[in-house]
Every structure is written in structure tokens, then in C-alpha cells.
Design a protein around this nucleic acid. Sequence first.
RNA 1: GUGGACGUAGCUCAGUUGGUUAGAGCGCCGGGUUGUGGCCCCGGAGGUCGGGGGUUCGAGUCCCCUCGUUCACCCCA
Length: 428
Amino acid sequence: MALKYKAPRGTSDLVFPESTRISSLLEVAARILTLNGYQLISTPILESTELFRRGIGEETDIVTKEMYTFEDQGGESLTLRPEGTAPVVRAYLEGGLQSRGLPQKLYYMGPMFRRERPQAGRYRQFLQIGAEAIGSRDPFIDAEIISISNNLFKKLGLSHYELLVNSVGCAECRPGYVRMLSGFLEGISQQLCGECRRRSRENPLRVFDCKNESCREALARAPVIGEQLCPACREHFNGALRHLERLGVAYTIDDRLVRGLDYYTNTTFEFQFEGLGSQNTVSAGGRYDYLTEQLGGPETPGVGFSLGVERLVMAVEAQAAFPFSPERLDVFVVAAPGADRGRVLDILTAVRAAGVSADADFMERGLKAQMKQAARLEARLVLIIGKDELEQGEVTLRDLDRSKQWRVPLSGMVAELRRFLEDGCFNG
RNA sequence: GUGGACGUAGCUCAGUUGGUUAGAGCGCCGGGUUGUGGCCCCGGAGGUCGGGGGUUCGAGUCCCCUCGUUCACCCCA
């Protein structure tokens, strides 16, 4: 209990069976992504600090107080990645991926790091699955990006969630809107909570996140971005919505939906779930048409999403029985009196070589304890070898689920194992 | 960064108005005579009661500090 070493705050160890659940979730996600033409990209967990400062925005919470930043021995400032989009765009530029043709459709899975106070659904190291489509401005690809999360949720049997979408405009229309909103906020500042007054100055769009009743009332008549979009943005947004409808993805327009990262333009979206506590966004993202330039590249549009795997797991646990069962051990080899360890090793090796998973006792336990171990591991079969079997050139197989056992000649052992594991019964 | 709740065996928890060697269930290890798991019975290992300080003849029980966990705010995946 008073252990000296513990996992750092906000991090955790993933052990069986959670570890296998996560890996099958990742597999399902990868399949869907691949099905949609996205290819895996893996970028370093470490990037130059400047990449995030420029990419995410100097004034964002992430950059100002949540990054794990340090100087390495050479005096270079590095940061544990707090998100995946900026690194992927950096890799796109650095690797000259545009020469492979556009759009580049890339996905990633891996840990992200943010130094926040942990709570339900929020960790300092967390897993994200994300995808980026770089090079296309077509609203169809916005819809595709959004539908991928939706497909994954459906595949996992999830239903109690809501997709919120909005458009935050572009360099043409957003500044005008922000000025209008600021003006409005000044007028009603008396009615706002201290927190909202601070936000009015620093990041006006965020006032819409306030849960305070009186603030919400005061904001009821606030100008809304949807009404201030320039014609191009309006058309783009409508296009994305039409495509979503065609894809059968249900959405709700939330004209107060604002995302925290500076790079978003046009389409933004969030999938919110019931029953997850206060961190209920499982997947979110949007378009970022200026990010590439921001990072020193040519003007290139892009759109993407990122999905919190731990939150996804919470959603699955809250709503559905987990749709995947872990793979069982096929065979546990038990040494009965008369069989030495060499024999066990020979059989183990032969069975494994045949592609059948197998394990055995490594604690020098007695027969009974070995049986117990086999049961604990939920092996489908126990293979017993002892004096009798050796004398007759056979092995005993025992079906733990049905408590039935039978003998087969050593020469036909592998074939019988395969037959049993396929048919699931002892008598073919 | 702010606030609330909680910290007793690997896990879930008991622990009476502060009183002698700190308990249960589950789990783990072993046994219940010949080579067989799950049920049952018996036995065993395992705790500086998160840590430090204080009050007291005496503290798991009271007080202070500290660390940690957790939930919420903030923010976000």
C-alpha cells in the first residue's frame, strides 16, 4: 500500500482483460479507417515545442498550461504531444506527401499527454484514434470524417449519443462575427459571471460554454455565428450537412458549439454521450484550412477528428455488453506422474508449432494444482501426459467445459486438437 | 490551478463512547491418501491501519500537516 513507486498521477497501467479490450477496439477502428481509404501514419510522441505553440495557438489552455515541455541535454525544447493533428500536418509537409496525390487520408492511434487535474474520463496520458484528410476542401470529406466515428459507434452497438455540428466560419467572416459578439458582451457584462467576463476579453466564443443559468439567459439574444457566415462558408456548411444526411448520420446543429483549438475553420463537430460524467465528448474535430500555412507550408485545406479511446471504453461499458470476447487459451499441458518436463516441453513445442496456443505449468506444481491452473486460465482443453500415456504412445485430452476426456495416439494429436478446436466437441 | 468526498490485507469492506495479540468475504498457497479443475470442508501466507507530527496512561479510532485516490469546476478526447 505504501509503495514507493506508483504510476504518475493521471496515468495508469493497462492489464488483462482491459488491455485486450483496448486492442480489439483499436483493431475495429483500424478496419473502418482502412475501409474508408485512410492509411496509418505514426509520428513521434515528442515534437519541438514550437510546433504546438504555432499549431494549436499561443493563447489556448493546452499551450499555456497543459503541455509537458522540457529541454533536452542539447538545450532543445521538446514537448510530449498534446494532440495529433499538428504532428500529422508537420509530417505531411516534411515528407512531401502532397506528391503522392491529394487528398492524403491518414490515421493515427497513440498516446497524447496533457497536464490537467485528472477526473472521470480525463487523464494526463490518454489514447487517441484520429484521422486527417489533407488537401481537399470538398464538404463531402467533412461528412466522411464525421461518419467514421459514427460507423465505429454503430459497430460497437452504441446508441445513446448525439452528434453536434456547427460552422465557425473562415478568415472572411469570423473576425466580423467575433467583433459583433464582443460588442454584445460588453453591453451585457453586468449580467455575466466573473468567469464569463474574463472570457469575454480573452476568448469571447467560449462564453457559450458557461453552464450558469443567468449567463445563459443573458446570452439568449447573443449574435450567432450561423447567421454571420459569408456565402462561401454557408454553402460549404450546407453541403456538409446534405452529405451527412445522405450518409444517414443524424446530427443536431448547435450554433454555440465552439472548439478549444485555434486552428478550426468552417465545420466543427462533437459526439457527446450520455452517462459518462462531465467529460462526455468521445470524438470531436473539424476543418482547419489555415493550419498548414501556419506551420510554414503552402495553403492546404484539411479536416480531421480525434477520438478518446478511454472515453469510448467508458461509453461501451455504460451502454453495451462488450462485443468482443478475448481469445481463450487452446491447450494447457499437464504433466502427470511419470512424465518429465522434457516431455511437456516437446508437446508444448509441437502444439504451438501447429498454430494452437498452449501453455503449461512453470511452478513445479502437482497434478491437481496444474488442473486448477488450467481452469483458471480457461483453457479449452487440457492435455495430460503421464506414465500410462507414455507407455501406450498416447495423450489424454480433457474438455474442461464439458468435463469429458478421451485418449488419442501421439501421432494423431495435432490433428485431433485442430478438429476439436474447430468443432468444439470431443466426439467427431 | 480551485472546491468536495475518501484513504484498514491483492480486491470489496467491518472495526462498538479511543482500551490488551486489527477482523470478514473473495482471491492466493497447501491439504482432504492411489494420476484430474470448477462445488464443499480444513489449514496457511499476507496489514509499519497512506505518511509525519500532536493530544492521551493508551489512537485504526480525536487534532494538525502532508501525500495519494476520486468527483466536480476550469478545459477538453
